[in-house]
């Protein structure tokens, strides 16, 4: 099995304060810590597990600036055989920060179509933008089937049986013909650590750089653009409901009802 895994480097923002920059369309990133996107990390692990079981190669691919190389090296240290970075710098200062899922998907598709592959894995959602689009788009552009939110893959070439996660504890079982793309849900496996020797070797490994215009793409038109970013309205501190136990319970029930929380 030759496996391609698409990974994104994202800022860790869950416990950090996030501020909007001067353009009003992006965030200030100087004090943020970047790491592999959470579900992409599970996708990477799944790729390595499939390779360990069935043989083949794992290629990690990412779009972005040279900062992404650290993330790709980490992928190599964990078990990817090769790494490719699509450099988006040439898209220009206006387009690059606004790059949309479709453009990313086009870039990935063009790069991946030059490779031999049986399986493409991506995370099911990028933690920063939360779109959940790129994987499905890449599959459509390549003309291969896909399944989103996958929590189990069993390969029985030329088919695979996958489980994907629906709402409220329900799973869908489906059969899919390879080559296919799966967007991986977190929790599908247990991502590994990298050993010191693997880290050392990964540091010396070459990362293949593809320039976006070398991929034969010229079109910089974007299908969706961010107009503005702004903080959600705030106003915290609990409103303490007053009264007897019965009264407070009634008040709370009314709030739950009015706000449609249940």
């Amino acid at each position: 099995m030759n496996i391609v895994v698409c990974i994104k480097r994202v800022p860790e923002t869950s416990e950090s304060e996030i501020k909007v920059d001067e353009s009003g369309k992006d965030i200030i990133k100087t004090r943020l810590t970047f790491d592999i996107n959470e579900s992409d990390n599970y996708a990477l692990e799944e790729a390595i597990l499939i390779k360990e079981k069935l043989g083949g190669t794992v290629t990690a691919i990412s779009c972005g600036s040279p900062d992404n190389d650290a993330t790709l090296r980490m992928a190599i240290a964990k078990g990817a055989d090769t790494a490719i970075r699509i450099d988006t710098a040439d898209l220009g200062e206006e387009v690059q920060p606004q790059i949309d899922s479709f453009k990313i998907a086009q870039l990935l598709k063009t790069a991946i179509s030059k490779l031999e592959f049986d399986i493409i894995l991506t995370g099911c959602m990028a933690k920063d933008d939360g779109y959940s689009q790129v994987g499905q788009m890449v599959a459509e552009l390549l003309g291969i089937p896909h399944a989103a939110l996958v929590t189990e893959i069993k390969i029985d070439a030329p088919k695979a049986r996958a489980k994907r996660e629906l709402e409220a504890g329900l799973l869908e079982v489906l059969d899919i013909t390879l080559p296919a793309l799966f967007t991986i849900q977190t929790g599908i496996n247990e991502p590994r650590y990298a050993s010191l020797i693997a880290i050392r070797r990964a540091a010396a490994k070459e990362i293949k750089i593809l320039k976006w215009n070398e991929l034969g793409m010229q079109d910089t038109e974007l299908r969706a653009t961010i107009e503005s970013l702004f903080p959600p309205p705030i106003g915290k501190r609990a409103e303490i409901l007053q009264g007897t136990t019965d009264e407070t319970a009634t008040k709370l029930t009314n709030i739950v009802k009015e706000k449609g929380l249940i």
Partner: peptide, 14 residues
């Protein structure tokens, strides 16, 4: 929402 709900975005569908 973006950035895990820390910000809201207005996205223009072109």
């Amino acid at each position: 929402q973006m950035y895990e709900g820390k910000l809201l975005a207005k996205v223009n569908l072109n």
